[in-house]
């Protein structure tokens, strides 16, 4: 399901396509692997010879591993979460040279956090491609306690830090790589609000 642009701060994503150069870094989770595999179909020969793939399988298990390995990237890293991969990614970004091309695909949480680390390292926005695939789950920052709740699929959601019931807004901060969560029943916390699964 494509993500509809709603408000101006809400990120929109494109489709990965092979970029010129030799230095390609792919970061993907779960169904994000499909975006890499689709790109590979139109990539010139030898495209992956110097490429690195950082892949977080999550619920996809080993479903995409064989296909990704078959692309024969120069380096392949498989990790349990984007959080676990960030330290090595930060080092990669810090030592990257100008020609690095970055391809981010999968959930918004992965794209947002990888983007945040890349921009912090001074990687130019124009050398980053993104494609959303898979779950619509959101990373949400509670505006009250500032804690981040990962993989939010419901509206509203209970903050995993302070326990307030949060309305998940479309308002998004690239700097925080998170949507904003604001207490939905702040005026009267005894008010019961139905919880629906909306970000599948």
């Amino acid at each position: 399901m494509p993500i509809e642009p709603t408000i101006k701060s809400r990120p929109v994503y494109g489709t990965l396509s092979p970029q010129p150069g030799t230095d390609h870094l792919f970061i993907a989770d779960a169904e994000g692997a499909e975006a890499i595999l689709d790109l590979a179909k139109s990539a010139p020969p030898g495209f992956f010879d110097a490429a690195e793939i950082v892949f977080i399988p999550r619920a996809s298990g080993d479903g995409y591993l064989a296909a990704l390995h078959a692309l024969k990237p120069a380096r392949f890293y498989e990790g349990p979460s984007i959080g676990a991969a960030l330290p090595r990614l930060k080092q990669t970004f810090a030592t990257a040279h100008m020609g690095l091309r970055l391809y981010l695909s999968g959930t918004e949480g992965l794209i947002g956090q990888a983007m945040q680390a890349a921009l912090d390292a001074g990687i130019d926005h124009s050398s980053i491609q993104t494609e959303h695939r898979g779950s619509l789950a959101r990373r949400v920052q509670c505006v009250h306690c500032k804690g981040v709740t990962e993989d939010v699929t419901t509206q509203p959601v209970t903050c995993s830090h302070c326990g307030l019931l949060l309305l998940v807004r479309d308002h998004y901060s690239r700097r925080l790589a998170a949507f904003q969560g604001v207490c939905i029943n702040a005026e009267d916390q005894s008010e019961k609000v139905p919880v629906e699964e909306v970000f599948r």
């Binding site: 505006v143 307030l164 604001v182 702040a186 916390q189």
Partner: peptide
């Protein structure tokens, strides 16, 4: 908004 749950009531 940080304190909305305190002043909202």
């Amino acid at each position: 908004p940080e304190n909305f749950h305190k002043w909202g009531p």
